[in-house]
Computed example of a mutant assay.
Amino acid sequence: MSQRRLPQAPAYWYDGSVPPLSARMLSALYASVTALRRKAYARGWLRSRKAGAPVVVVGNITAGGTGKTPLVIALVARLRAQGWTPGVASRGHGREDEAAPRWVDADSVAAQVGDEPLLIARASGAKVRVDRDRVAAARALVAAGCDVVVCDDGLQHYRLARDVEIEVQDARRRYGNGRLLPAGPLREPVERAADCEFRVLNLGVAGEGEAQRESGFGEWPMRLQVAAARPLRGGRAQPLSAFAGQRVHAVAGIGDPERFFAMLREAGIAVVPHAFPDHHAYTPGDFAFGSKLPILMTEKDAVKCAAFVEAQAYTVPVDAQLPEAFWIALLDRLPARLR
């Protein structure tokens, strides 16, 4: 069985063990720097810049994946259905030249624009702009005709003024040991979440061993609904149940690969897991598994692999499902004069 060791979350972030002294010392330094930065914006020493249109920021206060991308796609679809013209601003983590601003469309190359922005562009059809400077990205979208900007993973980018903040949290991991980086997974103190207008709890796929997890007071539950597995080389989609009882190679280069593997196991699929680092740049050699089995992978991975994977490779899309009351409350937060 293939299992990659990932240079990602240390075990002590989530298993209750005490972080090394060096990590705790660096964490204290990190806390001082982030506190000073927040204070600088709160006191007006540093200024936030407006985009020229309402801005909705979707992010998290922990490192690693929490399910932001499906929520961004669902948010774009809902805004469009309500008559808005949304655009998405993103940094485009993992792309070759992160200093170069780029427009992203369905024909873009993941290595140049980033895997998540490309997935969002293909799934939503919205204008997507990648730029390290989120203010510049947001203003470019407004200049291109967007009347609302969704900022993907920009909760800590205080330079961009925002109208609504949405924090996304993983129900299984929560805030880990509650410590700041690198002693724990937190980018900012837990108290920062209270400043967000909306706190979304990603409960995962129904039946994914997460059924006992429920959202708490002030949290909005988000479920991920699995669509049919789609062949990367074209052809008819198949329900995930079609793979039940079979062995498959499961590929995930996301923040929490185990969530994807657990979802497949819950569907009765015998998983041979292949976990890669988040934003991994795949090569054909990564798929030299030594056995001819169907390959199932996340959408985020599929946008980087379609050109060279085998015919038996499938992507497993997921759709974010939230209560109707969440959408009503969110839309109510946007400026009425622009509706």
Rank of each mutant, 00 (worst) to 15 (best):
G209Q: 11
P335H: 14
L79A: 09
R43C: 03
Q3S: 08
R192F: 12
T34K: 03
F261L: 01
A121P: 00
H249E: 14
F326C: 05
W45G: 01
V130S: 04
R47Q: 14
S241D: 08
S17G: 12
P70Y: 11
V104N: 03
L180W: 12
Q225L: 14
V248H: 07
P273K: 14
I295T: 13
H157S: 12
P10L: 05
G83W: 12
E208R: 09
V18R: 13
Q238G: 02
D195F: 10
L224E: 06
V226C: 11
G145M: 04
N60V: 04
P257D: 12
R172K: 15
P101Y: 15
P317Y: 14
R230L: 10
H157K: 06
P221Q: 07
A281F: 00
A183G: 08
E188C: 00
L36P: 02
L224V: 03
E324W: 08
A121R: 02
R213H: 14
G209M: 08
V164A: 09
G67L: 10
L186K: 06
A40Y: 01
A100I: 12
A237I: 01
G67S: 02
V318Q: 08
A28W: 13
P19K: 08
A307N: 04
G216N: 07
W84Q: 07
V109Y: 00
E191S: 08
R213S: 11
A144W: 04
S2T: 03
L118P: 01
A194Q: 15
M1F: 04
T34M: 15
R192E: 14
W220L: 06
P20T: 15
C146W: 05
G92M: 10
F261H: 02
V128Y: 08
A252S: 14
E266L: 01
A74R: 10
V150C: 04
A288K: 04
R102G: 06
Y30A: 02
K300F: 08
Q246N: 06
G87I: 09
C151L: 13
P101R: 10
A288R: 10
G94N: 10
L186N: 00
D170P: 00
T315K: 02
D131W: 06
G52N: 08
G178F: 10
V271G: 03
R38A: 07
G114Y: 13
A302H: 05
R337F: 04
G44W: 13
P54A: 11
H280L: 05
S291E: 11
W13Q: 03
Q8A: 15
Q8P: 02
V205E: 10
G290I: 06
L118Q: 05
C196L: 09
F287I: 06
G52M: 02
L29P: 00
E266Y: 10
V57I: 05
G218V: 14
R43N: 04
N177Q: 12
V88K: 01
V142L: 04
Q312A: 14
K300G: 09
R179N: 11
